[in-house]
Design a protein around this nucleic acid. Structure first.
Length: 527
RNA sequence: GGGCCGUUAGCUCAGCUGGUAGAGCAGCAGACUCUUAAUCUGCGGGUCGAAGGUUCGAUCCCUUCACGGCUCACCA
């Protein structure tokens, strides 16, 4: 797409990219940053931050700029609370106050607790087109990469203290130090800093053992900066040009607000930023926070939505707007909206010129690796759900029954089938679900007139190749009429025979969909 | 107490850098005596929360107010 010929994009990712260039000036390399504390399952709310940075980074690259997208695992934080969804709660309890990288992975899969939470996400991010450069804070601290940064903080402790006190109810005391120490005796942060020698030496007391020790910043990993100092220190060190943050950080007196002052101490300047709102979950419990136990992760969402559609959800919503990820009937509509956007992109659907560019840009940004030359195969999720259920979830059978599918369209189509099936089995309303009876399972007994009617209907179904959905529907009515049966009764009986329920998919289409090979043996069982 | 964000058709919301408001659902009418929120077609004057201000002109900018939500002031 030749960028210049098109009207200026008004998409938020492009607007922010422009803003970065405007405020930071022309640079060889722009650094965009994101970060998450892996103190529990990384949930879909955390993902909003990550995808926001990805989209802005992509927009910058499309403007011909070099971009470094760094993702910080803030894994050197204290283990403060045991999330309810983790196994072996009692064992985990014993690790409270220690860095989350020393906490064991109670699922027994990875080196430690933090790593377990990280790995699950790292494996999934490429699927949705996010491939940042990971920075592991435990490793950074362990290698004393921040020794100079910590020393600088100590040298400017009074300035920093004043900046933080701006918004505090209870001011930090005169003797406050801008560091916290993990005891080398207990690994816990239950320590008190006693002194700093003006250079690299920090002396502390371990409150649990009473031991007093002096550490050298250049060869210890035990001394850490508190969040409100750590964050701006790293902005300066990495030269961060852009980093969004949640609304909790963005309030006045919040950590972004204080960090934009503290960063000056380290000789840096604050990044361009925006505030993003939280996301809610609909049709599945509601809460998203890790403490409630029920956590919705990217993995959970990927089971219901394709990668493109997950991106689409975030791309098409402005970051400062709260929105819900739905697991209820909205799923059908979301897929339809996406498909419409896709048709607009490929010029298959009329739309006002005004909206066209906007939709096109949303579609582009929603793609994991750029838009394909050929439009993906479209089949409405509702229809797919019926086809899958008629085939007992056999995805291959459904795909091969669809007309004109090209080889290259199959992977996405298969993914959509998997999502549809997951949705049907896990979240679809009861009315929506059915499974075809096996002939031997049909229990209903027909009276003579019903038998005559269904015998006639079976004859029509024999000739299924001559029917269209419409003519089949007419045939169904004709049969009802000829045998003096109310259509509504005929329908009910038909569903009882076919799916063992009073209701089902629209009958004529359903018969056409299943085909005579599936339908006739079932009918025969009651005739 | 500070900050941020909302307040647009019955409902859910779109409306990008100002030019007298649009989608979906619901509703109404019609279509094939229909069913998985059934499908198709047609139908959208709502004081754009209130009051001022800037402007030739404001839903969109500024000020004040009301209501609602979130957030910070402890830690990350």
């Amino acid at each position: 797409m030749s960028e210049n010929k098109r009207p200026k994009s008004v998409h938020w990712a492009d607007i922010n990219a422009d803003k970065i260039i405007r405020e930071k000036g022309e640079k060889e390399l722009y650094t965009c940053a994101s970060g998450v504390t892996p103190s529990g399952t990384v949930h879909i709310g955390n993902f909003r931050e990550i995808i926001s940075v990805e989209l802005v980074a992509r927009a910058l690259r499309e403007k011909g700029r070099q971009v470094r997208f760094i993702f910080s695992w803030d894994e050197y934080d204290v283990f403060r609370k045991v999330p309810k969804n983790m196994p072996d709660q009692q064992l985990l309890e014993t690790y409270l106050r220690k860095p989350i990288t020393i906490v064991p992975d109670t699922t027994g899969t990875y080196e430690n607790y933090a790593r377990a939470n990280e790995k699950v996400l790292e494996d999934l991010l490429p699927v949705v087109g996010v491939e940042p450069e990971y920075i592991y804070q435990a490793e950074r601290y362990r290698s004393s990469a921040y020794a100079q940064g910590i020393r600088t903080a100590l040298e400017h402790r009074q300035e920093i203290r004043a900046m933080l006190n701006e918004h505090r109810t209870h001011p930090l005391p005169e003797g406050w130090w801008p560091v916290s120490v993990f005891s080398t005796f207990t690994d816990k942060d239950t320590t008190t800093v006693l002194d700093w020698d003006g250079a690299w030496g920090v002396t502390y007391r371990c409150e649990e053992t009473g031991n007093v020790e002096t550490l050298d910043l250049r060869d210890t990993s035990a001394v850490k900066l508190p969040w409100r100092v750590d964050w701006p220190m790293r902005w300066a060190l990495e030269g961060v040009d852009f980093e969004p943050a949640g609304k909790d950080h963005h309030s006045e007196g919040g950590s972004f607000d204080t960090s934009k002052h503290v960063v000056r101490v380290f000789g840096g300047e604050p990044p361009v930023t925006f505030q993003y709102d939280f996301i809610r979950i609909k049709g599945r419990g509601g809460k998203i926070s890790s403490s409630s136990g029920e956590v919705i992760s990217l993995k959970d969402v990927l089971e219901i939505y394709s990668p493109e559609i997950i991106r689409y959800l975030f791309v098409s919503t402005r970051p400062n707007t709260e929105f819900a990820i739905s697991f209820d009937l909205d799923v059908l509509k979301i897929y339809e909206d996406y498909d419409k956007c896709e048709r607009v992109y490929y010029g298959m659907q009329e739309i006002s010129e005004k909206k066209r560019e906007k939709e096109r840009r949303i579609y582009e940004l929603s793609q994991v690796h750029g838009a394909a030359d050929e439009m993906p195969y479209q089949v409405a999720l509702r229809h797919l759900c019926n086809m899958l259920q008629s085939n007992s979830g056999d995805i291959d059978a459904v795909i091969s029954s669809l007309p004109d599918v090209s080889e290259s369209q199959i992977p996405k189509l298969r993914n959509r089938c998997e999502c549809a099936w997951n949705w049907i089995t896990a979240f679809a309303p009861e009315d929506f679900r059915f499974s075809l009876n096996r002939p031997e399972d049909v229990t209903i007994v027909l009276d003579d007139s019903q038998k005559a009617a269904f015998t006639a209907l079976a004859r029509e179904i024999e000739k299924i190749d001559e029917h269209t959905e419409k003519s089949m529907a007419e045939a169904v009515y004709a049969v009802a009429h000829d045998h003096g049966i109310e259509p509504a009764d005929l329908f009910t009986t038909a569903y009882q025979i076919l799916v063992g329920k009073e209701k089902g998919p629209r009958l004529a289409g359903f018969i056409m969909l299943c085909g005579k090979d599936k339908i006739l043996p079932i009918l025969q069982a009651v005739l």
